[in-house]
């Protein structure tokens, strides 16, 4: 099986996160594998988004946050002094609500590469097309690249945000409930996208949709009250989880 040879892309060791006094992540240990989709599930407020954001240091933007433990990306510590901008280029993020910038479709995608110093029109054209194709959006927008990104549908906007993230050529793609605001067709487009993208990227996705986690992820992590309760192959988790709490959560018998 391919699983055996997967490389550990991210290794989280004894990670704790505090929002002021509040202990939001408790001693998390988790290996995230290259070329896989890892799903994070758990009830609202259990720390999924918090955990996701530690993976590219988005929590730095929040006041009174304290983080202890270790997270390595390809073996290099990211919690200590690192170039956060460079880190976020390698570890891109897509949010729950599509958040296109109020500019043209083209400029949205070219935004990141321009920031990273690419000026040449032909080079930008190439990146824009490649990213939009990778996000399975090219065919739908190639004839209106100069139109405002706010004028396309929600599902298209979300894929545009994915294209915008892909344009900076990240290695890891973090997605926080990327389809929760989308209809089934747009949802399945994004899910298919995960399937194709994982060949070249490592994907970590937060979802409240169990069936979605089942459809697209290789491994699933179940969080509860800031703890990582169970982490295993998705097939195992959804078929016969080891932990009673996981079982109760995924069968909808919680609380």
């Amino acid at each position: 099986m391919q699983k055996e040879i997967s490389k550990k892309k991210i290794v989280v060791k004894d990670l704790n996160l505090f929002y002021g006094e509040f202990h939001a992540l408790k001693a998390i240990n988790m290996d995230i594998y290259e070329g896989e989709v890892t799903a994070l599930i758990g009830p609202s407020g259990c720390g999924k988004s918090t955990f996701l954001k530690t993976l590219n240091r988005m929590n730095d933007l929040v006041e009174h946050v304290r983080v202890t433990g270790s997270i390595t990306l390809d073996g290099n510590e990211i919690l200590s002094d690192v170039d956060v901008v460079a880190l976020r280029k390698r570890v891109g993020m897509v949010f729950q609500k599509p958040n296109p910038f109020p500019m043209s479709i083209y400029d949205n995608v070219a935004y990141g590469p321009r920031i990273h110093g690419i000026k040449k029109k032909s080079q930008l054209d190439e990146i824009v097309e490649k990213s939009l194709r990778a996000a399975a959006l090219w065919d739908e927008v190639s004839d209106r690249l100069s139109k405002s990104a706010l004028g396309i549908s929600g599902g298209q906007q979300q894929r545009l945000c994915i294209a915008r993230t892909l344009a900076t050529e990240p290695e890891v793609l973090l997605m926080d409930e990327p389809t929760s605001a989308l209809d089934p067709i747009s949802t399945s487009k994004i899910e298919e996208l995960c399937e194709t993208l994982k060949k070249n990227y490592t994907i970590v996705i937060v979802t409240h949709n169990m069936q979605q986690a089942g459809r697209i992820s290789d491994r699933t992590a179940f969080f509860l009250l800031g703890e990582l309760v169970e982490y295993d192959l998705t097939e195992r988790i959804f078929h016969r989880p080891r932990n009673e709490k996981t079982e109760r959560y995924i069968t909808g018998r919680f609380g």
Binding site: M210, Q211, G214, F238, H239, R240, P241, T246, E247, I250, T251
Partner: peptide, 9 residues
């Protein structure tokens, strides 16, 4: 119902 785990089994 898209059953999982125990229900699925």
């Amino acid at each position: 119902q898209q059953p999982l785990a125990r229900d699925l089994r």
